[in-house]
């Protein structure tokens, strides 16, 4: 297992992504992944272990930690949340896929990380079904799918999501109504199949 990244690595990459350095955003994702995982584990070890750990809370915790330690500005927050939302989504989807393979007799090594992520997954419902519907939505309108990612996987408020996507709050609300309605109906039929 790789050593936990130092927050300054994340900071450095956030700054690089900010200035448009090619590949910086992609390089950021595994670090954010580690950040989230490390944070989840320390939380589970701590006094709040009994409490259900929610992915969105985790993302916020991670940001507050970074923000407080490195005095990161708002612009980094946007980049961070964009990265964290995608990462969180990927974490949950990967974990769900692995579990599905296990159920069908696949032989997959059990990773220690799963213990912490299992705690997250409980509060998310059927991640795989959502993933199918979300991919569909992304093909039709990428921005709306990103909004769902930010809201559902990073727990951002409407105003903050709008800021990250650089759209007006009103536009975000309109997008949100469409995305929810679309996913509600598609999710129902995916789950039926």
């Amino acid at each position: 297992m790789a050593p936990s990244p130092s927050p300054s690595d994340v900071t450095r990459l956030l700054q690089a992504a900010q200035t448009g350095t090619p590949g910086a955003f992609e390089a950021l994702l595994p670090l954010v992944y580690e950040e989230l995982r490390g944070l989840a584990r320390s939380l589970l070890r701590g006094e709040n272990a009994a409490r259900t750990l929610e992915p969105t809370a985790l993302v916020h915790e991670a940001w507050m930690r970074l923000g407080a330690q490195d005095s990161l500005g708002f612009e980094h927050r946007c980049t961070f949340f964009a990265a964290a939302a995608s990462t969180m989504r990927r974490i949950l989807v990967d974990r769900a896929r692995r579990r599905a393979r296990e159920k069908h007799g696949g032989n997959v090594r059990h990773e220690p990380l799963d213990d912490t992520i299992a705690a997250l997954e409980e509060s998310c419902g059927d991640v795989l079904a959502l993933e199918v519907a979300l991919e569909e939505l992304a093909a039709r309108d990428a921005r709306k799918a990103r909004l769902v990612e930010l809201r559902f996987f990073a727990g951002l408020g409407m105003r903050e999501s709008a800021e990250v996507l650089a759209i007006s709050e009103r536009q975000a609300e309109r997008d949100w109504a469409v995305a929810r309605s679309y996913l509600r109906e598609r999710l129902a039929s995916v789950l039926e199949d």
């Binding site: 769902v148 559902f152 951002l156 929810r180 309605s181 996913l183 509600r184 109906e185």
Partner: peptide, 19 residues
């Protein structure tokens, strides 16, 4: 699909909770 989805929406569907 959109109109059906909207009329079927449960409160809090996909919304962030009081985490």
């Amino acid at each position: 699909l959109l109109i059906r989805g909207y009329t079927h929406l449960e409160p809090g569907f996909l919304e962030p909770a009081d985490e």
